[in-house]
Design a protein around this nucleic acid. Structure first.
Lengths: 263, 263
DNA sequence: ATGGCGTATCGTACAATGTACGAAATAGAC
DNA sequence: GTCTATTTCGTACATTGTACGATACGCCAT
């Protein structure tokens, strides 16, 4: 029927092997060894970070990065196997900027203070690099800075009475929570910017449309709570409140668990 | 320089207005009104869901969907303004499959049982539709099924002693937690499938490479905990454990808060 | 039945993307 | 200075979302 003569059809999802050893080696290797043109992996990653931080992940293309470092597009591929590896490098790189050293979280006091500190720093990380929760790498990155960050975040909750897997689960819960709040936060920001309005104005313009559609009779709770949340968003402090509330509940829950074990 | 004669350059991020009223109207409108070819929005969304569920979000293209419903690609655009709106419709549609009715969570018992039920159902939702945590819509979808789900999830925690914004924050924390666990879960699954190995085998093949790179002297805690987590993953039950641990801590924390207020 | 009108259909086209391929240029070894 | 291996990068291609316009069809007045 259609005249398109497909040269090859992919019924299965077939990707090139994506050698994990190669990727790991890249992450852990030296990024400062210059090539013939004086270019380094470090410089490529820095340029990519610059683009992503200032123009968003959508603007991050291989051509764009190549232009930024003044080489031909394909030259990048002699430094980095592909775009995914580049984003891995970007992610691992910013992981190195979170803590001054591997014991900084530990120095904040008890484990509660440390986890609050961890949450704060990760929140700041997501604010500085909005693309972090956009890039959708399925596998964890496992670069050196990531491991170091993991170590830094585990230390203050080591020995407080949790099993190893519980420590991991707790940390994962905190980080996931921060990431989720950041996603919401950026969603609101993007919305505001897209409509060239403030968050407040967005809710005001959307309210009439929603009111007509959202029947208070059918959705009494949702309508009331949504209204309250909308009011708070107008008051501007919202996603951080959500973040703090969930975090404190989580910490209280851990405290209860520990108390139950020692008591 | 380059011979590409760009007809228009975008220095700024300029998107077509993406009329929110239009999108909302589409979400809340009738999806069963057939066009001249007998096609309906419902049928399009169903076909898109089929593709995304079975072949992944990467395989979801307008051409693919159009083929599935046996129309020309551009015909879709007389039903749906664009791909983003289609994914919005997909998301809202599956939101309607989570609960049997709006009071199902409430019927599970107290608020703890209800929230556990909510977490379970959302977990199942993410397992059935892996693309859910991949699609990166910045703004919330706000379709009818989404609102109904929100209502269903709010009701059991209404009147237990939380302020409105706290109810929203708590629910958001639970859902974010589930989503995060699901992301990890799918990451492991994808990894295993990509390498045509089981999770266990993946850890086994990666372990030697990692051991060489990951110095136990520099990362004692991370090395030990990572090892433990790896062992548990081999034991197969892991992401659900992480999910359950964080959830229970969160619930305990809420309980402590409520006890502090009434006591 | 027939003519006309409005809209649904959809073939073609275009800009953008990641990257495979292979020719050209260049640095280092002798 | 010549040879060789590697780096550089222009070109090309498949794939994506979707803008544009020509076409074809259903419906209504006649």
């Amino acid at each position: 029927m259609s005249k398109t003569a497909a040269p090859a059809l992919k019924t299965q999802a077939e990707k090139p092997p994506a050698d994990p050893a190669r990727s790991l080696g890249l992450l852990w290797g030296s990024h400062r060894r210059p090539g013939r043109s004086g270019l380094t992996i470090r410089a490529i990653v820095d340029a990519a970070l610059q683009v992503a931080d200032t123009e968003g992940l959508d603007a991050l293309s291989m051509r764009r990065v190549a232009d930024a470092v003044k080489v031909g597009t394909m030259t990048l591929y002699s430094y980095v196997p592909g775009k995914d590896d580049l984003t891995d490098l970007m992610a691992d790189t910013v992981m190195g900027t979170v803590y001054a050293d591997v014991d900084e979280p530990r120095r904040q006091g008890d484990w509660r203070a440390a986890l609050r500190f961890v949450a704060e720093k990760n929140w700041a990380l997501h604010l500085a690099h909005p693309w972090l929760c956009q890039l959708n790498r399925p596998r964890p990155v496992l670069g050196p800075h990531f491991i170091l960050k993991y170590e830094a975040e585990l230390r203050p909750i080591d020995g407080i009475g949790l099993r190893d897997v519980e420590m991991d689960a707790l940390l994962s819960a905190v980080l996931t929570h921060v990431g989720g709040a950041a996603r919401v936060y950026h969603g609101l920001r993007a919305e505001a910017q897209a409509s060239a309005q403030t968050d407040q104005e967005w809710w005001l313009t959307q309210a009439p449309t929603l009111d007509r559609l959202l029947d208070v009779r059918r959705f009494p709770t949702a309508a009331r709570v949504g209204q309250s949340v909308g009011d708070e968003v107008q008051a501007a402090a919202d996603p951080e409140h959500t973040l703090r509330f969930g975090l404190e509940r989580l910490l209280d829950g851990v405290e209860a668990l520990l108390a139950g074990r020692t008591g």
